[in-house]
Design a protein around this nucleic acid. Sequence first.
DNA 1: CGGCATCCTATGAGATACTG
DNA 2: CAGTATCTCATAGGATGCCG
Lengths: 125, 125
Amino acid sequence: MNKINETDEKLLCPIKYTLGIVGGKWKLPIICILSSGEPYRFNYIKKRLPEITNMMLTQSLKEMEASGMVGRKQFNEVPPHVEYTLTEKGKSLLKPLESLAEWGIENMHQEADNLSLCENCQAEK
Amino acid sequence: MNKINETDEKLLCPIKYTLGIVGGKWKLPIICILSSGEPYRFNYIKKRLPEITNMMLTQSLKEMEASGMVGRKQFNEVPPHVEYTLTEKGKSLLKPLESLAEWGIENMHQEADNLSLCENCQAEK
DNA sequence: CGGCATCCTATGAGATACTG
DNA sequence: CAGTATCTCATAGGATGCCG
């Protein structure tokens, strides 16, 4: 009944889907680590994210596996050995994420206090 | 000390900045409404988002005004009349958002149950 | 009409300890 | 090594009512 709604719903809805996939505190950090394309083990990822708990890492990886973003390969050895990689679907999100990052880089350095968000990285305009 | 961190931090950090700007439950919906380029009044936006409360709308608009995404124009009449628009900075985020939306459209219809996310829109591949 | 103050609640996330 | 099971807690978000 409200024609004017259609355009923005068609924009919003897929965005919500996408952010649902990578939402939460840890999924983007994990994707960024896996973005190299290499398969990494559970404890390696954990070392790269010193603040994450086993529980949050497990949960994030599991949800991303369920949504097809991350592949899990289990080696039946003792001790256990599991590797995680980005799937093709996961890799395909990197481009859109990069365009978000580009926008961020162009805008975040305009106000000085945003630099504080960025202790670890030296992203430059 | 950990060279391998640099690349993903440089990707992650601006993304976090960007999502900080449009994060939360209502900012993206508001941006999508304002994406038409037209200035809209408080109560018009509210009608387009039937579930939002005055408080959340006020707060979201205020934060987006503070971050330079939204412009506020107040007409000193009785009764009060206020118009909100996307600033240039706000408009410049639309392209990156569209690339996120594109990815969403390409992926959300592959699994049938994601359709339920999308009651209002008929986004098609 | 547009906005604010107060109070309240639900959910996401952390701490801790244990296991195949 | 790679998880899981509880418990607790903080914060984003919601309900309600008042105001210039």
